[in-house]
Each structure stands twice: as C-alpha cells, then as structure tokens.
Design a protein around this nucleic acid. Structure first.
Lengths: 129, 129
DNA sequence: CAGTATCCAATATGATACTG
DNA sequence: CAGTATCATATTGGATACTG
C-alpha cells in the first residue's frame, strides 16, 4: 500500500484516511447527535458525557473544515449557533451505523446488552423528572 | 449513551468499542494481510511499510488476545510461526471492507485515485524484478 | 526467526481561567 | 452563549539494543 499525503498529513491506507477524518474519541459522538436535527453548542456539550469544552470546539472545527458539518449563526440576542450535518456528513453516518451495529454485536458477544442499558438509563431519567 | 467498562477499559459507545479493538494505526494493515492466507511474522514486517518491530509485536498480541487472529508455532529449525484470521477476524474484515470502500470514495472526492496508485506501484515492482 | 526491554518524542486529551 | 488560551497529563508510537 502506497502512502498518501494530503495537506501535509500522511495516510497509510484508505481506512487510515477515514479514521483520521471521523475517528478519535469525539467526532462520532458529535456526528451521531446531529443525525436527526441541528443542534447548538451548549446542547451538544450537555448531551455528550465527559466531553470538555476544548474537545467539543476542536471537534466541531475539524468536522466543519472537512465538510461533514456546517455551522449557522443567527444574529439574535443572545447569539445562537447551530450545527448540522451536510450531505457528506450524512453519507459518513451510513458507514458509522455499520460500525456501530458491529459494535453492538461485539458487545453482546462479550456479554453486554448495550441497548438494554440505554433503555434503563432512559427510564431512570423519566423517574427523576 | 452510558459508559461501559470491560476489563478496566472504558468505552463511551459501541463505535468506540470497535475502534479500540481494531482501530489504531496498525491493526487493520495486519488484519488486511491475513485476509487470504496465514503469514509469518517476518512476512508481515516486510509487507507493511513503516511498521516497527515493537508495534508489530504489540499489535499481534492484542489481536490474538481479542480473538481476531490465532497463532500457530511449528517446532522446526529455525522455528516458524504463522498468524491467521479466526472466524471472528473474518467477520471484522467485512466491516473493514465497508470502511475501506468509503475511504476510497473520500480519497477520490479529494482528487486521489488510490487504486491507480496501487497499480502503478505494482508495475514499478515488476520492472525492477 | 521471532521476539523483549528501555528510553524518548509526538500527539491527544483534560483542567482551568478568561472573553466578545 | 459560544467560544479562546494556557498548562498539565496520558497514551501512542519510534529508535535502539539485546535474546532464546
């Protein structure tokens, strides 16, 4: 496999290329939450556990630079910003869903019923409210 | 998304789980080369550009511990060791192929014809031999 | 041949304080 | 609200030397 260099970054193979674009800890959690509708910075931060301000900002900036998401700022008071998936981002989601489904399989093989955990968590929230 | 902890490692979501298992720089290049047949340590090192002994050893160990590959040692002189995909590893390859195909698309959209590059490289080798 | 062991550099992520 | 800036830490990977 030959190396590829794009914008001074080196990639060893096509999979490496994908993972440097949408891999890492935070890009997929962000893309995932933009799947159905646009969201604000503060919503994302509230909805994504453990993410720091720094990583959210950095992740949004890179995803926007690579064309997976777009940003719209509304000139209101207080100012509002919304992020949403571009068509390119929606296409990426199709691949992410495949990886995620495989992940659910792996987790189940390792004795973890992830979707049941999500349900349980949702129930918990209901009770609290 | 609730967190999952398996063997003291924390995972934020199912995709994260997959990427911690078969992500990173070297796991996929290794799996890729075991796709069609078993290979020896030295073959893998020769065939995978840039990989260091350390990373090859570490990658093989982790893939074996996670059940994606298996290792067979032949009691010959000099000793021979072969690595091959397990059924679990073959299943992972299906997902990897999806990611790879998406990578080829992304590369092409960015103006890079990766498959042509591979062909050109093969021609180059032919000439040299 | 098929590895181990050790030390070091680069990168990714986190924590904290501050701002238009 | 939606960020920026700075410092600290953890993880990953590379270089080099050695071994059953």
């Amino acid at each position: 496999m030959p190396d590829v260099i794009v914008n001074k970054q080196q990639f060893y193979n096509p999979v490496d290329y994908v993972l440097k674009k949408i891999g890492g800890t935070w890009k997929i959690p962000v893309l995932w939450r933009l799947q159905k509708k646009a969201r604000r910075y503060s919503e994302l931060q509230k909805d994504i556990p453990h993410i720091s301000q720094k990583m959210l900002t950095q992740t949004l900036k890179e995803l926007e630079a690579d064309g997976f998401i777009s940003k719209q700022t509304f000139p209101e008071v207080p100012p509002r910003t919304e992020y949403s998936l571009t068509p390119k981002g929606q296409q990426a989601m199709e691949v992410i869903v495949v990886i995620r489904n495989y992940g659910l399989q792996l987790l189940q093989a390792d004795g973890i019923d992830y979707e049941a955990m999500i349900k349980a968590e949702a129930e918990q929230k209901k009770k609290q409210s």
